[in-house]
Amino acid sequence: MTDKAELELDDDFVGEDADDSVEPRHEVAKTNLTKRRIIDNLLDERRLKKNLAEYDFDL
Rank of each mutant, 00 (worst) to 15 (best):
D12Y: 04
L33T: 08
V14M: 07
K4Y: 10
V28S: 05
K4F: 13
L7P: 02
L43G: 02
L48E: 08
N51Y: 10
N51G: 00
D40L: 15
V14C: 04
D10T: 01
F57V: 08
L9R: 10
S21H: 02
D17R: 07
R25P: 02
K49S: 03
A29I: 03
E6T: 01
K49G: 04
N51S: 08
I38S: 09
K30A: 14
L33F: 11
K30F: 12
E16D: 06
R25M: 13
E54L: 07
T34I: 06
E23C: 06
D11N: 08
I38A: 09
D20P: 04
R47M: 03
D17I: 04
A29L: 06
E27G: 00
S21K: 11
L52P: 01
D58Y: 04
H26A: 14
D19V: 08
Y55A: 09
D11L: 14
L42R: 12
R36L: 13
L59F: 15
A5S: 14
R36N: 09
K4M: 14
D40C: 10
S21T: 11
F13W: 14
F57G: 02
D12S: 13
V22D: 00
F57M: 10
N51Q: 15
D11P: 07
T34A: 15
A29R: 03
L59M: 13
K30S: 10
R37N: 07
R36D: 09
V14K: 14
K49D: 05
E54H: 03
K4T: 10
Y55E: 07
S21E: 15
I38L: 14
V14E: 08
K35L: 10
T2N: 06
E16N: 05
L9P: 00
T31P: 00
I39D: 08
E16C: 01
E45Q: 11
N32C: 04
L42M: 14
N51K: 15
L43C: 00
S21W: 08
D20A: 13
D3L: 15
A53M: 00
L43Q: 03
E45M: 11
G15T: 10
R37Q: 07
R36I: 09
L59N: 12
E45F: 10
D44A: 15
N41W: 15
D11W: 11
V22H: 00
D20K: 05
K49I: 01
T2M: 00
F13C: 10
P24H: 01
D12F: 05
F57Q: 03
I39Y: 13
R37T: 03
M1F: 05
A5N: 11
D11I: 09
D44M: 15
Y55R: 12
D10S: 04
E8D: 05
Y55C: 05
D44F: 15
R37D: 05
L43M: 02
F57R: 07
N41T: 10
T2P: 03
R46Q: 03
R37Y: 05
E27M: 05
D44H: 13
R47W: 02
K35P: 04
D17E: 08
G15E: 14
E27L: 09
V22G: 04
D17V: 02
R37P: 00
D40S: 12
R37E: 08
V22Q: 02
V28H: 07
E45K: 13
K30N: 03
A18D: 10
K50Q: 09
L52F: 07
A53K: 01
R25H: 07
L59H: 10
D19F: 05
V22I: 05
L43V: 02
L59K: 12
D11T: 11
L42P: 00
E27I: 02
D11S: 11
D44W: 15
L42Q: 13
